[in-house]
Design a binder for these strands. Structure first.
Lengths: 206, 206
DNA sequence: ATGAAGTTGAACTGGCAAGTACAATCGACG
DNA sequence: CGTCGATTGTACTTGCCAGTTCAACTTCAT
């Protein structure tokens, strides 16, 4: 096997520590030393697992992206079995998505992507392909089912999914000051309600 | 006066050059040397005008933000005298806003903000206060007029403005791969139309 | 036990770039 | 013309940090 597991995989600790430190300081400011410390590991150990600071960054991003995506996909589950009250179900999902979109890891991931897009153009493929694109796809699938069963009037589920997410997460940027400030739970609920109301007014069945 | 103008103000050239280079390479990778070259100026001259690389960055951001904001505000003008066909007017404004949101300077500004938010927390105030917040305000004002004259059914113009912008620019992120790819003009028109259609379905008067 | 693989701390190298010092130059204005 | 201030090129100091080396140490499999 490639890595022995004498202790609980250092590799995992390194990736998590790397993401934490990169998120806190940015790529340039983060020292490999800092990362090693955060992971509870010596600097040479980092270089045992990763050839480069750059590849360390890429792998850390990739791991974080995977986690974030799976969380978001899970949040869509209630849409497969919507109760009698569609708006209520939508609101629940919307709220959950907002919560996930405002948490620490998501915000940091987005910031890191934006910041290093110039120096790591390939990081985009690494993350986006396993990112919003797949989430949109999944949401569109659910919405298509709802349209088929006559509970939505949209003819283009992909567009509907795109707009649903836009209504939901668009206002976040301004309200969280680009992810630097947390938002009260009550306000998240209000935002979810507002987004769903507009969406349903536009595309719901009377 | 603070700066003589023996030649056409170097200061301006420096700020523009700085923004260009910062946008191209990111803060860390951009060398003051590069910036001086881009501005057609010697390195010590840069330090004559700016004490620091950091303050140079701040001033460059601030200047760019001012430009971007004024362009966007100007795009709202048609809403003050909407013709008989409100959706058409909205579409025109929407398209113009999309065009501005996808241009080089806007994208770079957004990227730079996101990337250096950790190292320059104060840059947020510098830009955001003169940024989306004021644009939202202006748009909300226009929408309030429309609501008063019975052409929109919304009761909360601020919310309406927020959602209009969200519907419009939300889909941009995915489609431009976070601002790294340009979008065909025709597609911008389609997106504007889609956003306006949904907005009008939700809040327009029949 | 014993040896292989991995880990550790510390110290070292090398390169890169911020910021500065300085002497030569340029341009404006009296 | 001559002076003053800003500008220029160059070269230097300085600090930082990625990446490496190495010898000592831990862990585990056989």
């Amino acid at each position: 096997m490639s890595t022995t597991r004498g202790r609980i995989d250092k590799r995992q600790a390194i990736l998590e520590g790397a993401f934490t430190v990169f998120a806190r300081l940015g790529y340039a400011q983060a020292g490999v030393q800092d990362i090693a410390a955060e992971a509870g590991v010596a600097k040479p150990t980092v270089y045992n697992h990763m050839t480069d600071k750059a590849t360390l960054f890429r792998h850390a991003l990739e791991a974080a992206a995977r986690t974030v995506l799976s969380e978001r996909l899970a949040a869509l589950d209630p849409l497969t079995t919507p109760g009698d009250d569609l708006p209520a179900t939508l609101e629940g999902v919307a709220y959950e998505l907002l919560r996930l979109h405002t948490d620490q890891r998501s915000c940091s991931l987005k910031r890191l992507l934006y910041s290093e897009i110039t120096t790591f153009p390939d990081a985009l493929d690494l993350v986006l392909d396993s990112g919003p694109h797949r989430l949109n796809q999944a949401l569109a699938d659910r919405l298509a089912r709802l349209a088929l069963s006559g509970r939505l009037r949209t003819t283009d589920p992909d567009l509907a999914a795109e707009q649903f997410m836009a209504l939901l997460t668009g206002p976040l940027e301004a309200r969280t000051r680009m992810g630097t400030e947390q938002i009260a739970d009550a306000q998240l609920r209000t935002m979810a309600r507002a987004a769903v109301e507009t969406f349903v007014r536009a595309w719901g069945t009377p």
